[in-house]
Design a protein around this nucleic acid. Structure first.
Lengths: 184, 184
DNA sequence: GGGATCATGTAACAGGTTACATGATTCA
DNA sequence: TGAATCATGTAACCTGTTACATGATCCC
């Protein structure tokens, strides 16, 4: 994401980390979490997270009271910081997982992260998310179609609108064809 | 754009400004250019450019030797900086306008800016750009389709791949349906 | 002996967002 | 009288990228 969060509580990267923390029963530390974002990890193809930013985000989650850290000194190693989600953090995560994204361009990253985490948290959550996202996209497509009729054809603004509509329809078709992923 | 330009010479916003300067015979100043990015301007729906960034980018174009400024003192006003494109800047612009974008996600902003400017600079340029962009997207779609067969169905990575393919196919279909926009 | 792994970060750089400052003139 | 227009910017903030630092241990 670029610039300010504009009302959003946190970035998709932060929610991804929060979600991973929430999914595991025991505490997890940064190096451990970083494996999920390396080649082969499930989220590697969706969101890119270098170690530097990962540790930065963990600090921010802690600062916001969404995660708690325990310092374990380890001989001959930098002390390990292990994190767990707080009740406050779990609430924020669930709120986020219930909220579909507002724009087609956010499907590619933010919605995919939500989908991944929602599915792991429970099939019902994922199903509701998908249904609500479908509604949003369907509304966007309808208003783009209206706009398209007003714009006609052959002009640049009409081409811009047509691209947006094509992308939105494609996302809709994709979401309709989604099977409940059973394996990860 | 996010983060580093990674080998790119400038941001789409800078090329948009450079292109607008190159298209007008006379010199243009910042306030004048800013109208193109306000509601009603052709580029308003494609790229967002607040005055602060616009003036910043103009300075950068000047610093890179792509544009030249003349200061005209105006009574009771801040002195007006009017810009023209240098030969060096015009070369950079033409190079950029010949280059299709490498990823589907860049179609929405960067390719649209290229298309708009290329069309105004000459129908041949736009035609070639569209043809080359088609090739790139077609190659991307083919490799996503390959990958999709390897991934099968029902898993999260398969769903991620399917979304990318759907978006790329949609961009391809859109580009095939593009008419030469005659009006702007 | 040399590289991968474990584990956490810092620092420099790049670039975008939002709000504000300035101050005259024109128009309703 | 007050808002919009002309015209250019600054400052504070937020986020991400890239490269590097540290230092032990494990494996070939």
């Amino acid at each position: 994401m670029v610039g300010t969060r504009r009302g959003r509580e946190a970035t998709p990267a932060e929610f991804a980390l929060l979600g991973l923390l929430a999914l595991s029963d025991d505490r997890r530390h940064g190096y451990d979490l970083s494996r999920e974002f390396q080649a082969g990890g499930a989220l590697a193809d969706v969101i890119r997270l270098e170690p530097g930013m990962l540790y930065h985000h963990l600090k921010r989650l802690e600062g916001r009271g969404w995660a708690e850290a325990t310092r374990e000194p380890i001989p001959n190693r930098p002390p390990r910081q292990s994190y767990t989600v707080t009740a406050f953090g779990a609430e924020a995560l669930d709120r986020w997982l219930r909220e579909p994204v507002a724009h087609t361009r956010e499907v590619r990253l933010e919605f995919l992260v939500k989908l991944y985490l929602a599915h792991l948290r429970g099939p019902g959550l994922a199903g509701r998310l998908v249904a609500e996202q479908r509604e949003i996209l369907s509304g966007l497509a309808a208003s783009l179609r209206d706009q398209g009729e007003r714009l006609g054809r052959g002009t640049f603004p009409a081409a811009v609108n047509a691209l947006r509509l094509a992308q939105t329809d494609a996302a809709l078709a994709w979401i309709d064809g989604l099977e409940q992923p059973t394996r990860t």
